[in-house]
Amino acid sequence: MSHQWMPASPCTDTCHSAYVRAGAVAVALRYVALVATAAVAVLLPLAVVLPAPRRRGVHRRYMLMVLRAFGVRVQVSDERGPAGEPGRGVLAVAGHVSWLDVLVLNSVDHGEYVARADLLDWPLIGRLARRVRVVPIDRGRLRDLPGVVDEAAERLRTGTRVVAFPEGTTWCGRAYGRLRPALFQAAVDSGAAVEPIELRYVRGDGTTETGVCFVGEQTLLASLRRTIHLPGVIAEVRRGPLQEPGVDRRELAERCERVVHGGHRREREVDVLLASAHVGSVAVVDRRPVPVQ
Results as ranks from 00 to 15, higher is better:
Leu274Met: 14
Val76Glu: 07
Val66Cys: 02
Arg54Leu: 15
Arg55Gly: 02
Ala186Thr: 15
Val97Asp: 00
Ala182Cys: 01
Leu44Asn: 07
Val20Ile: 03
Cys256Asp: 01
Glu251Gln: 15
Ser98Pro: 05
Arg127Val: 14
Val292Asn: 09
Val279His: 05
Met6Gly: 03
Leu230Asn: 01
Thr160Met: 08
His110Lys: 05
Arg54Asp: 03
Glu254Val: 12
His110Glu: 14
Cys11Tyr: 08
Gly111Cys: 08
Leu273Met: 14
Thr227His: 06
Ala24Trp: 12
Ala22Phe: 03
Ala164Phe: 09
Val42Arg: 13
Arg249Leu: 07
Arg226Pro: 08
Val163Asp: 07
Pro86Lys: 07
Leu43Phe: 15
Arg143Pro: 03
Leu273Ile: 14
Pro86Ala: 09
Met1Pro: 06
Ser276Thr: 14
Ala182Ile: 01
Ser98Glu: 12
Val58Ser: 02
Arg54Val: 13
Phe184Lys: 04
Glu236Leu: 10
Arg268Ala: 13
Glu251His: 13
Pro181His: 00
Thr12Val: 01
His264Gly: 07
Asp248Arg: 10
Pro7Val: 01
Gly140Pro: 02
Arg161Lys: 15
Ser281Ile: 00
Leu105Asp: 10
Pro196Trp: 00
Ala117Leu: 07
Arg55Ile: 01
Gly232Pro: 05
Glu167Val: 10
Ala175Ile: 03
Ala83Cys: 02
Arg225Asn: 13
Ala69Gln: 00
Gly84Asn: 12
Ala83Trp: 02
Ile125Met: 12
Gly81Lys: 10
Leu183Glu: 08
Val270Phe: 12
Ala187Gly: 11
Ile125Ala: 15
Val97Arg: 13
Val42Asn: 02
Trp122Pro: 00
Leu67Arg: 03
Ala152Arg: 13
Pro241Ser: 15
Leu64Val: 06
Pro86Leu: 05
Gly262Lys: 12
Ala222Arg: 11
His16Gln: 10
Cys172His: 01
Arg178Thr: 02
Val247Phe: 10
Gly173Glu: 02
Leu242Pro: 14
Glu79Tyr: 11
Ala94Phe: 09
Val284Trp: 14
Leu224Val: 15
Arg80His: 05
Gly204Tyr: 00
Glu236Ala: 05
Ala153Ser: 14
Pro53Ala: 10
Arg130Pro: 06
Val272Phe: 07
His110Phe: 04
Gln218Lys: 05
Glu151Val: 12
Ala33Ser: 03
Glu244Met: 13
Leu67Gln: 06
Val284Cys: 13
Met65Gly: 08
Pro86His: 05
Ser107Phe: 08
Ala277Ser: 13
Arg73Trp: 08
